[in-house]
Computed example of a mutant assay.
Amino acid sequence: MRVYIGCAGFTNDDWAAPGLIYEGVKKDAYLGAYAAHFDAVELNSSFYAIPGLKSFEGMVRKTAGAVRFCVKLHKVFTHERAPTDDDFDRMLQSPEPLRDAGVMGPYLAQFPYSFHRTPDNRKYLGMLTSRFAGHELAVELRHASWDKPEVRAGMAEQGVIWVSPDYPPVGGMPEPQVHVTGDVGYLRLHGRNRANWWEGQSASERHDYLYNRAEMDEWAEKIALVGGDLSELYVYFANTTKGHALKNIPMLREALNARGVPVRTPEPPDEGRLL
């Protein structure tokens, strides 16, 4: 199993704080600095506007082909749920430079908590997955009504990746387990900020959480158990607030290596300013 570990997004101004990886780095150089530390990234900007071909070409150039990109679907697919044929065409065609460079990971469809398992929503999800047939698609379903073996069995039949999540223990959402529906796994660690998950005014507040070592050991154990079932696993930390993810990723790498799950760690050129 090849494990790719990175963050949900890379344009985090929090990381320009003293001692963190963007200290003294200009914004247009953030992605290159990110690539010195991580081998995968979840592209958040595509949720708000689908980048064009030249933008994706620039991403490949800035990372020297060393970073895998998982591209989040635009909100028209997951939150508005009214995509046009043109939306599908752009979403499927624009990342072609990533495919050409061999650095395209799965698409990510991140549905909101309000997307319950109803007949209409099941029909919509079936339509969406059929339109992305032939491409790896990872689906995050935040409402607990989807957290059922029969749902994952159906996703496995369709070649769709179940996104395994770690949410705060607030109830009503899927349990924190690594589930396998194919050769590729996908894990998103949101942090466990129970107080701000519903009440937080922004994603930054909701993801303001630093995992402790025991919690990283817990996830390393769960990942090790499925190591023989997967060819690839993508692990993304969404707790990017205040650089929490930058501290947690080395913890998880160490915990995985200790359990016989090899993880590649990029070697930054500036060893004096690491995480």
Rank of each mutant, 00 (worst) to 15 (best):
M155C: 07
D85F: 09
H116D: 13
I161S: 01
M59A: 10
S46A: 04
L225W: 15
R117Q: 15
I223D: 10
P149I: 15
W197D: 00
A64H: 05
A224N: 00
K72T: 06
Y234I: 12
S46G: 00
T11Y: 14
S202N: 04
E199R: 15
V76A: 02
V76T: 09
R152V: 05
Y186Q: 07
S114C: 08
K247V: 13
V184W: 10
Q110C: 09
D270Q: 14
G65M: 11
P250Q: 14
V160N: 01
L128Q: 07
I5M: 05
H179T: 11
S164A: 04
A64K: 09
R152I: 02
E267I: 11
E23K: 02
L210D: 11
H207W: 02
E23N: 08
G6H: 07
M127S: 14
E221W: 03
E140T: 00
R264G: 13
I50C: 08
G9D: 06
A220Q: 02
T118Q: 04
L275A: 15
K54D: 13
H207F: 06
P169L: 01
L252S: 09
R117T: 10
F56G: 03
Q110F: 00
A138D: 05
V261P: 01
P112G: 11
G134V: 03
D229P: 04
A64L: 08
V170M: 02
R90H: 08
E215T: 09
R117S: 11
V178Y: 13
T78H: 03
K247H: 14
R192Y: 03
G243W: 12
V71F: 04
D87L: 03
I50D: 10
G191R: 01
E175P: 05
R117F: 07
E80R: 08
L275K: 15
G227Q: 13
A16L: 14
T118Y: 04
R259Q: 10
T265F: 01
E136R: 06
L233Y: 03
K54C: 04
K222R: 14
Y22A: 12
K62G: 06
